[in-house]
């Protein structure tokens, strides 16, 4: 399976996600620079990595979401291409309008950097086939702006449509309804604050993150 990773100035998890994708798919992802106009035609997944694109200027992910490559990402996502945004990537996807809501400063104002327990949502999307619904997994978070916000009608709709892919099983950042990750209505775009790419082998303390990529590979390939 051929994949791509979008790299912005200030991305810092682009190499981590590239390692995870290469280990699971057996193929090195294509690294796509933010100024490129298009993704390669033959990719089956595009990842928007974590980091601090454009130094979080204006709002986290705001400038990256308007970069040239994102026009093609939005276009291809609309045609069904799977898109995975992690941490800053989640922020970029909300700013680009691919996912509802916004990610604001953590409720405690602290940068939160630790392993957290997540509950896998009921949603059966291509991104969660490696898990059982309702299962608890441990994946690290590292963010300052992970406090998910949306108006009550939007939150009801997201939950009603079964778009919540992961919830925090403990207090982390004040996110509305403990939302840690969600998919779009079509189910081909996932944004999540926790970092599955940082939990892919025993040396990381477990492989709960790897299962996301393995499930995705089975679902997409």
């Amino acid at each position: 399976m051929k994949t791509a990773v979008v790299v912005f100035p200030g991305s810092n998890c682009d190499r981590d996600i590239a390692v995870a994708l290469e280990q699971v798919t057996g193929t090195k992802p294509v690294m796509v620079w933010h100024r490129d106009a298009t993704l390669p035609d033959d990719v089956s997944l595009v990842a928007i990595p974590g980091g601090f694109s454009y130094g979080d200027y204006l709002r986290s992910g705001a400038i990256a979401a308007r970069s040239p490559i994102m026009r093609d990402v939005v276009d291809r996502a609309g045609k069904g291409l799977p898109v995975l945004g992690i941490c800053n990537g989640f922020q970029v996807l909300t700013e680009a309008g691919l996912l509802p809501g916004a990610l604001m400063r953590n409720a405690g104002l602290d940068f939160v950097c630790r392993d957290v327990a997540l509950t896998v949502g009921e949603t059966r999307s291509i991104f969660t086939t490696g898990y059982s619904a309702g299962e608890t997994v441990r994946v690290p978070v590292a963010h300052h702006d992970g406090n998910y916000v949306a108006d009550p009608e939007t939150l009801d709709r997201i939950e009603g449509e079964g778009q919540v892919a992961f919830r925090y099983a403990e207090r982390v950042n004040g996110s509305a309804r403990d939302i840690a990750g969600l998919v779009n209505t079509a189910g081909n775009v996932l944004g999540m604050m926790p970092h599955p790419e940082r939990r892919i082998e025993a040396a990381h303390g477990g492989d709960d993150g790897r299962r996301l990529f393995e499930g995705l590979l089975r679902a997409v390939a």
Partner: peptide, 9 residues
């Protein structure tokens, strides 16, 4: 609307 403000919040 397109950049300076995020009208969601």
């Amino acid at each position: 609307r397109k950049l300076l403000a995020n009208t969601v919040i």
